[in-house]
């Protein structure tokens, strides 16, 4: 996803890009929490007269997205089946927990 707008301070619509640059850092954090790689999302200032820059930004984002591969929105990541009696426990759940650090003996009150 590319969000592009006029450079702040240089827009016919005055402050829409100001509102956008306040929103985008929050949206970035939203997307990370939703498990979407933040490199898939970019905010760039590209005015209507910067054709070369627009092409560079689009090519760069296309390369990034191609290297990341498809975005699997909504994937649950497959949890192992829940154990039931008679089945082996999933590997991570069967092993004993790492030994707890030894506690210093407490003096009796």
């Amino acid at each position: 996803m590319l969000v592009a707008g006029c450079h702040p301070g240089d827009c016919h619509y005055i402050n829409g890009n100001h509102k956008t640059f306040r929103r985008m850092p929050l949206l970035h954090r939203f997307l990370e929490e939703y498990g979407i790689d933040p490199r898939r999302f970019r905010l760039e200032w590209v005015s209507a007269s910067e054709g070369d820059r627009f092409a560079q930004v689009v090519n760069s984002l296309t390369e990034t997205v191609r290297s990341l591969g498809p975005c699997r929105i909504g994937s649950e990541g497959k949890s192992p089946p829940q154990p039931s009696d008679g089945e082996a426990l999933p590997a991570g759940l069967a092993a004993p927990p790492p030994a707890a650090p030894a506690r210093a003996p407490q003096p009796e009150a």
């Binding site: 154990p83 039931s84 009696d85 759940l93 927990p97």
Partner: peptide
């Protein structure tokens, strides 16, 4: 020892106990 995690089915001398499956 291993920490106890919920099993969907567990056999005990009195029979089989079941728990619902938790979804992802």
């Amino acid at each position: 020892g291993a920490r106890v995690v919920p099993h969907t089915r567990t056999r005990v001398p009195e029979g089989e106990l079941t728990l619902p499956e938790l979804y992802d």
